[in-house]
């Protein structure tokens, strides 16, 4: 089944609404904050929808979930999901999540933020949380630019991208996020586009159920800025581009999955390894060294 078929199937299967019906997402979204601020055909809302479905299918009680965001368009996710949710400072969602998770290891902690927030100003925190294998799922919506501030070049903007601070085209080399994530120690790494909704949901389920540091990159249209400035058309045109140019290669060597402005996009689940988590290691080491003076830490 092609992704377009999948999309149509999903639309067909989604429950019909009559006026007065409760919104099917009302248990998951803060309906008193809707409408949201995202532009029509922006990809962020799609990823939130996938996330809601993933949580439901994992049967994780929403009371046990905490969503942490930084600043930016994707940084607004924490403001709309009806879980305990924290909208922190720019780039610092991951260290906040570190404290939250270590403070209460029963919480399912999810960091939901954008590429600029997680990999520019917050880049170092990503590296260290992955290195420590802290229990958290990091979902990065990558729209290749700083959209909230009006479309500046980001560390993920493909070379040649035209943005307000790269008006003559970006001459820098962007990050290859799956390669970066694998190098610094993430135990689960996947990449999809906002078109691959079922696969996004499936990967989210795997990430949520997997102990340790899991990372999902979702490439998403930014119709107002990135697509317009780089002449990709609107959000729908961009989904068509994803459809025509995505190639699924599970287990692809992450060093080969870098993204060019108009090149093929390699998607798939690239990394799935086992490694003791921060809390597992801490408990094992301290128990061995301190014996009866140490109680296994459970929060």
């Amino acid at each position: 089944m092609s992704v377009i078929d999948e999309l149509q199937q999903a639309v067909k299967n989604s429950p019909r609404q009559s006026p007065g019906d409760e919104h099917p997402m009302s248990n998951f979204l803060r309906m008193d904050r809707i409408p949201h601020i995202w532009c029509p055909t922006c990809g962020i809302g799609t990823t939130v929808n996938c996330f809601a479905q993933a949580l439901e299918r994992c049967s994780i009680p929403l009371d046990d979930v905490a969503v942490v965001s930084g600043i930016g368009c994707t940084g607004r996710v924490a403001g709309y999901v009806k879980t305990d949710s924290f909208h922190t400072t720019h780039g610092r969602a991951i260290p906040f999540a570190t404290g939250l998770r270590l403070g209460n290891p029963k919480l399912k902690v999810v960091v939901f933020s954008g590429d600029g927030d997680l990999f520019s100003i917050g880049g170092n925190h990503f590296n260290h949380a992955a290195r420590r294998n802290l229990d958290m799922t990091v979902i990065c919506v990558n729209n290749f630019n700083y959209a909230m501030t009006g479309g500046q070049v980001a560390p993920t903007s493909p070379t040649d991208s035209v943005l307000t601070t790269s008006p003559y085209g970006n001459f820098e080399t962007p990050f290859n996020l799956p390669f970066l994530a694998e190098s610094v120690g993430a135990t689960f790494v996947a990449r999809w586009t906002a078109l691959h909704i079922h696969r996004v949901t499936e990967s989210m389920i795997k990430a949520l159920m997997k102990p340790g540091f899991s990372f999902i990159e979702i490439i998403a249209p930014c119709p107002t800025i990135f697509e317009r400035k780089n002449k990709f058309g609107d959000g729908l045109d961009r989904l068509k581009f994803y459809h025509d140019n995505s190639e699924i290669i599970h287990g692809a060597p992450t060093k080969d999955v870098d993204i060019g402005l108009r090149n093929k996009i390699i998607v798939g689940e690239f990394v799935d390894i086992e490694r003791p988590t921060f809390i597992e290691s801490m408990n094992a080491y301290l128990k061995r060294r301190l014996g009866s003076d140490y109680d296994i830490y459970e929060g």
């Binding site: 409408p35 601020i37 995202w38 532009c39 029509p40 607004r76 959209a147 909230m148 009006g150 107002t224 800025i225």
Partner: peptide, 8 residues
């Protein structure tokens, strides 16, 4: 203007 780029 608000934080949103479109629609508000």
């Amino acid at each position: 203007f608000g934080p949103e780029a479109r629609g508000s």
